[in-house]
């Protein structure tokens, strides 16, 4: 996640770094306040109670939360959902991945992607719940028996990216990894 290789992952990484520095600042502020009041008794006696509770409990968090949630929703609109003309079917089963391409070909535990292009991946499962995740390309989506879930991903450059099953699915869970290979000339349409 910290080394994004596609637009979805890139957006999330940017969001993370904003939240990280913002969170670190708030954390430092809270702890400084607490220690100041504890180690310097009578230091805060001039500040009326209302200032603390209304200021700290409402005025401070509400705009911060509103800005953050707004930004995250906006980011979500841009990167989640949506569709793409190129569609790959991913079937997760205990404990391997099978990928089927528009031209009818299929591969096991290796996912071939066109580089620099949006792909829609439709994720299903015939047995238990699994979860499809290529950390460097974007978020995850669960493979739930009886449902077909989709996610749109893009690899900016050709290369190999690791993928895993992220939902515990039994004793073979660890071995259920796959490799996503982004190719400049894909040729599976």
């Amino acid at each position: 996640m910290l080394f994004p290789a596609g637009p979805a992952a890139q957006g999330i990484a940017t969001l993370w770094w904003w939240m990280f520095w913002g969170g670190a600042a708030i954390f430092a502020l809270m702890l400084a306040l607490f220690l100041w009041l504890l180690l310097r008794p009578a230091a805060g006696q001039g500040i009326p109670a209302r200032w603390w509770i209304v200021g700290g409990g409402l005025v401070f968090p509400l705009p911060v939360l509103a800005a953050l949630t707004g930004a995250a929703l906006w980011l979500g609109e841009g990167t989640l959902g949506g569709t793409a003309p190129t569609r790959i079917e991913a079937e997760a089963r205990m404990w391997q991945w099978q990928f089927r391409y528009p031209d009818g070909s299929a591969t096991t535990d290796v996912l071939h992607l066109p580089a620099g292009r949006d792909v829609e991946i439709v994720v299903t499962s015939p047995d238990v719940i699994h979860s499809f995740w290529i950390p460097r390309l974007g978020g995850k989506i669960d493979a739930i028996p009886g449902h077909a879930n989709r996610i749109v991903l893009r690899a900016d450059a050709p290369g190999e990216y690791g993928g895993v099953c992220a939902e515990y699915c039994g004793t073979g869970h660890v071995d259920m990894s796959f490799t996503a290979v982004a190719e400049a000339d894909w040729g599976r349409e």
Partner: peptide, 16 residues
């Protein structure tokens, strides 16, 4: 970190 996880795009990465 809980507020971070409440954000859908970030949670989709950090979940599980």
């Amino acid at each position: 970190s809980g507020v971070m996880l409440a954000m859908v795009p970030f949670d989709l990465q950090a979940h599980d």
